[in-house]
Amino acid sequence: MQNPFRSEAEAFRFLIRTIVYFAVIAVAALISTWLGVAVFVVATSGIVWWLFFRVA
């Protein structure tokens, strides 16, 4: 796992990813609370898998 703040360019990319992550969860949660929870679980699991298993 790499530090997302190791450079300004990386931090900028991390910001964009954060916006997308929270936007998807917020939109899903506004449609239905449980859909928001489901999207949160799926998105977070995907990120954890990508960070710790794919990138390693």
Binding site: F5, S7, E8, A11, F12, F14, L15, T18, I19, F22
Partner: peptide, 18 residues
């Protein structure tokens, strides 16, 4: 001198999104 405040600024933005 520009890069380091830039990193901090992006961090502040990330926190605001949260």
């Amino acid at each position: 001198g520009v890069e380091i405040p830039g990193i901090y600024w992006h961090f502040v933005d990330v926190m605001w999104i949260v």
